[in-house]
């Protein structure tokens, strides 16, 4: 049920406006002489704090191998449906990656759709997608604003790997069945 909030009646000085306006002008005058807080952007670059969610990128492991296995969880979780992955099989002629079996044939992120929510990074089981420091994406055409796989790896670079999941897997494969 709606109910009425009684407003406090205005005091004399409030009803006269002028004292209030003068008080306001005092505040603005103070600000007139305060130093500027604006960052003069193209000349001065902002310091990007850790944990900043910039442009999503794909990263490689310390050995320069693609980490993404195209599980498409990021594509699934992406709220604005900006990610589009074409999965594919890793060919057997890549000896250091063939044991991963699966990798993306194409990986497109439409930066006109991306909302920088970071859910793709959150959901990635392989720690292959990261929102990094780049905050400015520009292009003259819509097509330019779609980051393809090559662009994503170029933006992402290499990040240290803490798990070496697939390296362990490969080592186990080469060792065969050690127990028994």
């Amino acid at each position: 049920m709606a109910y009425v909030v009684e407003r406090k009646s205005l005091s004399l000085s409030e009803r006269l406006y002028l004292p209030q306006i003068v008080a306001g002008m005092k505040v603005t005058l103070k600000h007139l002489f305060k130093p500027n807080v604006t960052l003069e952007y193209p000349d001065v670059r902002p310091a990007i704090p850790p944990g900043y969610r910039g442009v999503p990128t794909l990263v490689k492991d310390p050995n320069g191998r693609e980490k993404c296995v195209s599980c498409q969880l990021c594509e699934f979780v992406c709220p604005p449906k900006a990610i589009r992955i074409t999965p594919g099989e890793v060919p057997a002629n890549q000896p250091d990656r063939a044991h991963v079996e699966k990798g993306p044939q194409a990986f497109d992120i439409d930066m006109l759709r991306c909302i920088y929510c970071g859910l793709c990074q959150e959901v990635c089981p392989e720690e292959a997608i990261f929102l990094q420091n780049t905050f400015s994406m520009t292009g003259y055409t819509r097509a330019e604003m779609v980051n393809d796989k090559a662009k994503l790896y170029e933006l992402g670079g290499t990040l240290p790997d803490q798990h070496f999941k697939w390296d362990k897997k490969k080592a186990a494969e080469e060792r065969g069945n050690p127990h028994h």
Binding site: Q72, P87, E89
Partner: peptide, 9 residues
């Protein structure tokens, strides 16, 4: 169908 598409899509 191997590695073509995740079934939840």
């Amino acid at each position: 169908f191997r590695f073509k598409m995740r079934v939840w899509f």
